[in-house]
Every structure is written in C-alpha cells, then in structure tokens.
Design a protein around this nucleic acid. Structure first.
Length: 263
DNA sequence: AAGTCTTGCAACCGCCTTTCC
DNA sequence: GGGAAAGGCGGTTGCAAGACT
C-alpha cells in the first residue's frame, strides 16, 4: 500500500501503515524519553509522523503489555456491563480491561454489538410510540426528582435491586421504568461482572458467558435502554459517575464492594 | 470459481479539554 | 486572562482476509 502524504500544510506528515523501522524508532524514543511529548518524536527520531500519530501507534500497538487476540468472555462481559452504565466511554472501559485499548474495545463493540441494528430496526410506528413514552418518562422524572444521597451503599443496593427485576425481552418497549442491564437476574446477591477476576471465589459457577440467549437479551436490552439511558443517565450522570468512579478507582481496595457484600 | 458480505483491525479526522507561555 | 499547542477521546473510514452464496 502506498502511504499517503498530507500536502498543503506546514509539515507534510506521512500517513498510512507504520513500518517496522518506524516502530523501532518510536519505541526507542519512548524508552529514552518516556511517554508524552509526542510532538517531539519527529524532531528527535527523524520520524515523519505527527505527534498524534505517534501517540496512537504507541498506545494502540507498541505499548508493552498489550493483549492481542480475541477478547475473552469475561472481557466481553465487562464491556457489556460498563457500557450499559456509561455508554461509549471507551477509554473508561479500557481502564478496567488491562492490556486492551479503547480502540480495540470500540472496534469490538462496533462489529459485535452493533451488528444487530440492521436486522432489527424499529419501524416508524414503534419509534413514535417510543418517543411519546420517553417524553412521558422525562416529565415524570422531572416531577419525581429529589435530592439524591451520595451514598455508595444505597446506590449499589438499588443497582442490585434493579438487576433482580425482570429483564426486557426482545422487541418490547420500555413502559414504566428503566432497569439497568440484567446480567444475573436470578442471583440473590448480584455480583457485577467486573469483580469476577478480583474475587473469583465469590463468582458463581456456570456463569452466563455460556448462555447465548442472555447475550441476545443483553444486546436487545441495550438497544431498548439506549434512548432512555441518555435521559435518565444524564440526569443522574454526576451522581452515577461519582458512584462508578469511586467503585472502580481502586478495585483491589474496594470499599464499595466490601460494603455491598457485607450488606 | 467468482462475487458479495462480514469481521477484525489499523489509522485518520475532528472536536474538546488541558497545559503552557 | 487569552491564545496556541499538545493531548485525549469518540466517530469514522479503509483495507485485508475469511466466510458465505
């Protein structure tokens, strides 16, 4: 393939696939100077690549510790779980998948979880109804909105309770309330997927990764909640992000989890 | 066998935020 | 405080390879 060159700007940076030689130069630069100062790479190494391009190449390909190959069922579960809560926050999701990049997760989501869009487009009638319902929900939420406790215990408990509710089957429209993704609906003590690797002894056997039906449900549910999540989640965004951030910031020392399990 | 579709991946683009001067 | 540069992020594109028809 012929790498394109950008013309017309002050600097004609090289584009396209990286060569082994370029990778080597970039790796040497990072080993000497560390990550950062990407705009200096060209100056120090002679690489004809923009700082952005260098950063991207390093972060997504050259950085030590990156995992290659297919995502494991556990990793898929984590992606689903966090995406259901945070949406397309790929970099955030990537933080909880060591060795995986935001780009990789984004690509994976696009090819695996978005593929159903083509086959299950809702018709206009459904769209209209959905809009009306969401509008009603929004109004209802505005009326109901009360100062929320910034209490980790209550938040996680409510999350767990929600997860014990009946999930939404394919093709249905959310009518009353939004229930977060049901991943282990029959578990009395719902354990978020992201903790599995950290607390393997607490993870039930025969987990859902073998259950294809559940994946379908999750995918369908994700589509169903997509619109409403934008509403409700945005309204609770600050609160929710505080909770999730505090939960995830230091999993190994996870007070949230300990409190939840002890509760 | 040939054409089409799907999947996986790398890389670029544009926008926004942060940092620096 | 304000503008420029750099960094970060999400969206998108393009291509190769394999699967499918």
């Amino acid at each position: 393939m012929v790498a394109a060159m950008v013309m017309g700007s002050e600097k004609a940076w090289k584009k396209g696939p990286w060569t082994l030689e370029e990778d080597k130069l970039l790796s040497e630069y990072v080993s000497l100077h560390g990550e950062g100062r990407w705009s200096s790479v060209a100056k120090f190494t002679g690489l004809n690549r923009s700082g952005k391009s260098c950063r991207l190449r390093w972060v997504n390909y050259l950085k030590p510790g990156l995992k290659k190959g297919h995502l494991t069922p556990q990793e898929e579960a984590i992606i689903l779980e966090i995406h259901a809560m945070l949406g397309n926050k790929w970099s955030t999701i990537a933080k909880y998948l060591p060795g995986r990049t935001d780009n990789e997760i984004k690509n994976y989501w696009r090819t695996h979880f978005k593929k159903k869009d083509k086959s299950s487009r809702i018709n206009k009638k459904q769209e209209k109804r959905r809009s009306r319902i969401l509008k009603q929900m929004k109004q209802h939420e505005q009326q109901q909105q009360q100062p929320q406790q910034c209490d980790v215990q209550s938040s996680i408990s409510s999350h767990a309770e929600s997860n014990n509710q009946t999930n939404v089957s394919a093709g249905t429209v959310l009518e009353d309330t939004y229930h977060p993704v049901t991943t282990m609906e029959d578990q009395d003590n719902y354990l978020p997927f992201m903790y599995q690797d950290y607390f393997p002894s607490l993870w039930p056997e025969n987990t859902v990764e073998q259950d294809e039906g559940l994946w379908v449900t999750l995918w369908n549910l994700d589509e169903e909640i997509q619109g409403h999540r934008d509403n409700q989640f945005n309204q609770n965004a600050i609160h929710h992000n505080q909770i999730t951030t505090s939960c995830f910031d230091d999993i190994s020392n996870n007070l949230c989890f300990a409190k939840y399990m002890s509760g």
